[in-house]
Design a binder for these strands. Structure first.
Lengths: 236, 236
DNA sequence: GCAAAATTCTGGTCTATACCAAACCGCTGG
DNA sequence: CCAGCGGTTTGGTATAGACCAGAATTTTGC
C-alpha cells in the first residue's frame, strides 16, 4: 500500500524522530543532511516532512528549521477558565504579548453580537505562547458600554476575570464556531510561521444572562497545538 | 509582502475560480493547462493550488482533478440530530454507505467508556456523503448490552433514533474531542482522496442519564467540508 | 448496440539543480 | 566582554523534465 517513496520516508522519519528526540533537543537536522542520509532530494524529503507536519508530529518556525511538536494543549472553548489557568493546569508555561489596544468598528463582531454595523468596540489584539512557542493570535472585540475604561486599565490579565470582578458580568450564552483554515500572511507572520500554515479559527460571541452582548472573540490557533475537548451533561 | 510568485498565483487563481466557477461546472482545468496559462511549472502551480486547498476553496478527488468546494456543512457535535436531518435542513443531499458490520473489541472505545480493555462492541463502519461528495468516514462502537440485536436490524437509518425509539435510551452525557489530523492511508482511500489529506477527527463518548456507557464514535471528516457550530446557554 | 480493449489524459511522484534572503555563527575590534 | 560585521548555513522558492498508474475517453470487435 505505501508504495510511494515519500510515504516510506515518512515512516522512517517518524521512527528516527521518536528515537532521537532527546539527543536532538527538539530540533531536526537540516533538510540537506536528512535528504543525503536517505539518498533523496530535498523536494521529496520535504513532502515527507509535510506529511508529519499535517499529523502534528513536527512543525517549523519560519526559516529556522523543523522542530518536534510538544503534546497538544487541551482546550475547552465552552468554559471561561483563563488561558493562563488552564495552560498552567497542564504543566505548561503560558505567556501573552499584547500587540494592539484601540477603539474601532468591526463588521463580523457587530453582526455576531446583533449590533449596528458601525458600532465601535474596544479592540485588544494579542499573541499567546505555550512554553515559548507562539500558538495563538487573537482579537477581542468588547462592547464598550459593558467595560468603559477597559483600554486604560488592561495589561495582560484575564479578560473574563476582569469582566466578572470589575463589572460584575456573568457570561451566560455563547455561540461558538470552529473552522479549519490556512493562516493569512498577517496571522502567519504574527505566529512566526510560513504563510498558509494550517490553522484553526475559533470565533465566539458572548452574551450575559440577560442576553446583552458582551464580547466577540476571534482566535487563530496553529492547527497542531491544540485538542478541543468538550464535556456536556444533560439532554440536548 | 506577497512577493513569492506562488502567492500571487494563488490570488490570480482565486479570482479566476470565482469568475469561472459556473462555466467550469465545479471542475478546474488540468494542471498542465493552468501551468501553461500562467507560464510556470506544475510544481509551482501545485503549490498555489495547495494554498487554496488549505483554505477550503478547492479540493481534489484522487487522480481525477481539482474541484471547487461547496459551502461548508454546519455541524453541532453536541446535538443528536441525525446526519440525514441536518444535512437536509441545510438544503443538501445526504447519503450513507455501510462498509462494515461486526462484533469486535476496540481499545479506544473501551477506555473512553470506562469498560474493560477486551470488551466486545457492535461495530458499524460507514461512509457519509453530502451532495455525492464523500466527506466523512466513521466508526460506531455500541455497547451490545444496550442494543443486543443491533447488527441484525441495522440498515442505514439514524442510530440515535434507533437507540431512542427501540431501546428507550436517553443520551445525556457526552465527552467530545476534536483534533486536526492528516487522514490515514485507509481513511483517505475510503474518502477517495490522496493520502495525508487534511482532516478533522472527532471522537465522542456517550452515556445515558444514569451514567451508563452507550456508544463511542470516531469520525474522520475532510477538513474543508464542515464548520463546527455550538450554541450554549447557562453559565459554565 | 453494447461490452471489451486500446489509447489518451491527468494527477501523483521523483530527480537534479539553482538562487535568494533570512537566520545563524564566528570573527574582529573596540 | 560585547557590539558590530561578514561569511556560512539553511529553509523557501522556482525551473525543467520524466515516468507511472489510475481515470476518462475513444476505438474496436462481436
Amino acid at each position: 500500500m505505501p508504495d510511494a517513496y515519500y510515504l516510506q520516508l515518512t515512516e522512517q522519519l517518524r521512527h528516527l524522530i521518536t528515537q532521537h528526540a532527546a539527543q536532538w533537543e527538539g530540533k531536526l537536522p537540516a533538510e540537506r543532511a536528512l535528504a543525503e542520509r536517505f539518498s533523496t532530494t530535498r523536494v521529496t524529503l520535504r513532502q515527507a516532512l509535510a506529511q508529519l507536519e499535517g499529523e502534528g508530529l513536527i512543525h517549523r518556525s519560519n526559516r529556522r528549521g523543523w522542530f518536534i511538536s510538544p503534546a497538544r494543549l487541551m482546550y475547552d472553548p465552552t468554559r471561561d477558565a483563563g488561558f493562563n489557568d488552564y495552560v498552567r493546569a497542564q504543566g505548561r508555561q503560558p505567556r501573552t504579548a499584547v500587540l494592539q489596544l484601540e477603539s474601532r468598528a468591526h463588521l463580523p463582531a457587530a453582526r455576531a453580537l446583533n449590533l449596528p454595523d458601525d458600532h465601535v468596540f474596544h479592540h485588544i489584539r494579542r499573541r499567546r505562547y505555550v512554553d515559548d512557542r507562539a500558538v495563538l493570535a487573537e482579537s477581542l472585540w468588547v462592547v464598550p458600554e459593558r467595560a468603559p475604561e477597559l483600554l486604560s486599565i488592561y495589561a495582560s490579565q484575564s479578560l473574563w476575570g476582569l469582566l466578572r470582578e470589575r463589572w460584575g458580568h456573568h457570561l451566560a450564552n455563547r455561540s461558538i464556531s470552529m473552522v479549519s483554515e490556512a493562516l493569512s500572511p498577517g496571522d502567519a507572520e504574527e505566529l512566526f510561521v510560513a504563510p498558509g500554515t494550517a490553522g484553526l479559527n475559533i470565533c465566539r460571541a458572548i452574551f450575559d444572562d440577560q442576553q446583552r452582548p458582551i464580547e466577540y472573540d476571534e482566535e487563530h490557533w496553529l492547527h497542531d497545538s491544540l485538542c478541543i475537548r468538550v464535556e456536556l451533561s444533560g439532554q440536548q
